[in-house]
Design a protein around this nucleic acid. Structure first.
Lengths: 357, 357
DNA sequence: CTGAAAGCGCTTACAG
DNA sequence: CTGAAAGCGCTTACAG
């Protein structure tokens, strides 16, 4: 089929023809660049409106490609035994990278040790020296992260936070879970699967808990659910900042020796596999177990039946969408969404096979 | 940053330079077009390998744009009061259309009446006359659909089925739910939320049930779960091919007057709102209700608490991915996945706000 | 304030 | 079997 010159496909050339000017002038008006008389500007704008002109993104990018490379930096925890979680966001980053590579985008990854604020600060230094065009990161260390945000803002560099927000801090763009509802949903699931009043165990396992916003908000949401729906529910608490199996096991032993045996356990993060391991070793099968994240070990326990529900908030998509949001902002000046909340997915033994991260 | 002429960015020009031929010859080799001597062909291929040449998709599409329009046809049910479900796949189609419009793709929609095989056949006629380059459809009427598949295959036209498969028929590409596990998952949820042995009501509401593969497979999956996990569970059955509220209401009345009062109700499709309405009108609050699809009315009942779980299989994504799969196939000759199963999402009152279709 | 021309990396008639 | 040239729709130095 031949290309028709109808309104739908009109380009700069057609606009120039109608306005009796050169395409360079049209381009100036389109991009609001100075150096065009008010009169021709208005004329051109009216033609643009009339034709409902849509720029051809392909041609735009192709022309721009000559200009230079767009450099995006990514600051995330390095993957280790303990932090398999970060594989998914990093994969999302890589997927985005592959899709936008053609657009002359270059992605550099800066990885830090999740337990070492200094390593975070070191990477921040490097990033600040390199002055990338955009930055994706997760604010594992709030203090350092706030500094980073300030420095990005000073340099007028677009950035996006993923997976965790910093409470009470004004920031440009966040993509990740809504933590309170996540805990609230866990409460609802426990409530569906147990009888009123049956004791529930709420488990926080993390190197740091007191300042751990993610854990505290989920904890809060979980309690809020019962506050509103089953006030008399006994919620036993287990906090531990020792994250090895021996410590967790010991604490669980103690809880289960006491009077009120829990009917359900909610672990507020991906360490749910430690509890699953313990239940498995004790051959306890009548306790409902909920936790977080689609990790290999967790899924194994899901399959075995030790874990009943995994809650998951699309870590892969967080990395992917974060990068795309920077790209869109930098290339097409599309405003970044201030807050993009991920779905709270419920995964069980019967649907995990079909889950997409 | 200046563009460097390193291996990473080498294009046809660089290949031509190294091979001491023109870029036209390079192009011929890249696309395996005839008219190149074996010797130069081999030389060029070796250079392509050495440079790890990746074509610039932007430039490719831009150049191709002049060639002509790619025409994709979409054959789906028209949206009516009764079939709000199809809004989501159609929206997905539209989203894909917007993203690939730049690539000179034109999408034509052919809508049929879900209750009228003749209207389906009429639209098929039209499509066959227009001879589009690719087709996305849902095989609402198996017999007519098989004919359509044959005709596509004869014309060597790529196509993709969404939302429903045709059992026992060889087809090129399907994107949609895995029905058996969907029912199985519903069984698991009921099992979690009720006590062993409590009666369950399995409800099929559809104009046609006997030949309705989607409903029958979910029904089967649901029963299979209990067969494997709670054999003694009483599963009451309610089938109705009258889909108006009065008929459904009447049948439900009858069931609830009998001896075994259901503790949970599983509706195998989106008509779950009819049952919700009935429960609501009877002020019955202690019955667990599960059904399908993120429709306005269903979500309202979810919010109110009449519906407990909605199962949803990404209808929007089905439309979107279906179109993208055709596009990729036609433009880049990327093989279509034979079967792409959607996640089985679980939606409750506490997470529906964050759900993305 | 405005325009002619070159270029982005690829494809495609056309000529030899 | 091979190449020179025009074109896709846009952007950008450069010249006036």
């Amino acid at each position: 089929m031949k290309k028709e010159k109808d309104k739908a496909n009109a380009g700069v050339k057609e606009i120039a023809r109608r306005a009796k000017v050169s395409i360079a002038t049209v381009d100036r008006v389109i991009h609001n660049r100075p150096g065009v008389s008010e009169k021709t500007k208005e004329l051109i704008n009216s033609i643009i409106r009339e034709l409902n002109y849509q720029p051809n993104v392909l041609a735009q990018r192709l022309a721009l490609a000559s200009r230079g490379i767009l450099r995006l930096a990514v600051l995330l925890p390095a993957i280790s035994e303990e932090t398999e979680f970060w594989q998914a966001p990093l994969d999302g980053v890589t997927q985005a990278e592959n899709e936008i590579r053609q657009y002359n985008v270059h992605v550099e990854r800066f990885l830090f040790d999740q337990n070492d604020p200094l390593s975070f600060a070191r990477q921040v230094k490097k990033i600040e020296q390199q002055k990338p065009d955009g930055l994706l990161f997760t604010p594992t260390f709030p203090e350092e992260s706030v500094k980073l945000i300030r420095s990005c803002e000073k340099a007028d560099m677009p950035y996006v936070l993923i997976n965790a927000d910093i409470p009470g801090v004004e920031r440009r763009s966040y993509i990740g879970p809504e933590l309170f509802h996540s805990g609230y949903l866990a409460g609802q699931l426990v409530n569906y699967c147990t009888n009123p009043g049956e004791p529930v165990l709420l488990v926080n396992i993390a190197k740091e808990i007191a300042g751990n916003h993610a854990i505290l908000r989920k904890d809060e949401g979980f309690r809020a659910f019962f506050e509103e729906h089953d006030k008399d529910r006994l919620i036993i608490q287990l906090h531990t900042t020792q994250t090895d199996y021996a410590s967790v096991s010991q604490k669980l032993n103690r809880v289960f020796q006491k009077e009120h045996r829990p009917r359900a356990i909610y672990v507020t993060n991906s360490r749910v596999s430690l509890v699953a391991k313990w239940l498995d070793s004790k051959k306890i099968k009548d306790v409902l177990l909920l936790g977080y994240d689609f990790l290999r070990e967790n899924v194994e326990y899901l399959e075995k039946g030790a874990i009943d529900f995994l809650i998951c908030e699309k870590p892969h998509e967080q990395g992917y969408k974060g990068m795309m949001s920077l790209f869109q902002k930098l290339v097409y000046n599309v405003e970044q969404e201030k807050t993009l909340l991920m779905p709270i997915d419920i995964i069980t033994r019967e649907n995990y096979r079909f889950y997409h991260n």
